[in-house]
């Protein structure tokens, strides 16, 4: 995958198709978790791949894997669409709190996921829940606050505290 992106940067369409074939399902899943609407998720994946074709030259393997780079582009494309829609996205399809344990379990099988899971486990449950909901499901500060039934400022402060603890734990 790392060798495909430089080819994309030189305008090699076959390399772009190869990336799409290998990554589209994973990346579509990431967009769908945030947008919970197949048409919108397809729009996000479209925007992301157009960006990939244009920005492939900026990929720097010294700073992370191609998979992570692609996922970040797709997430931000999906988040941009979610913002453009005022994040009026149905809450249905969001994981129930009980599912989070299973979610975290699957994290351990992900590359680099073990350490992150251990660090997430050290967080207070409400901080952990918010971080997962925001990252995986694209919930905004107000949405997190509404879901946990706390004032906006409290939700923001919890998220900041959660991020800070994570950073210290992962350092």
């Amino acid at each position: 995958m790392n060798s495909l992106l430089p080819r994309v940067a030189r305008g090699d369409r076959a390399a772009l198709r190869e990336i799409y074939e290998a990554q589209a399902s994973r990346l579509f899943g990431i967009a769908l978790a945030i947008l919970r609407d197949r048409d919108a998720a397809a729009d996000a994946l479209h925007d992301a791949f157009v960006k990939v074709a244009r920005a492939a030259g900026q990929f720097d393997p010294a700073r992370g894997s191609a998979e992570a780079w692609l996922a970040a582009i797709v997430r931000h494309a999906a988040l941009d669409l979610a913002r453009a829609r005022g994040r009026e996205i149905p809450a249905e399809g969001l994981p129930e709190p009980a599912e989070e344990a299973t979610q975290l379990h699957s994290l351990a099988s992900a590359q680099d996921g073990v350490r992150l899971r251990e660090c997430l486990a050290t967080l207070e449950e409400k901080n952990r829940t918010e971080i997962l909901l925001a990252f995986v499901n694209g919930l905004s500060h107000p949405q997190v606050a509404a879901r946990l039934d706390v004032p906006l400022g409290t939700a923001k402060a919890w998220i900041r505290r959660g991020l800070l603890s994570l950073r210290e734990c992962l350092a």
Partner: peptide, 19 residues
């Protein structure tokens, strides 16, 4: 970039889905 690296594993929590 550092935060993208730290949080990237969470992307694996989204179930793959055929576009």
């Amino acid at each position: 970039e550092a935060w993208e690296r730290r949080l990237h594993p969470l992307a694996a929590l989204a179930a793959p889905e055929r576009p």
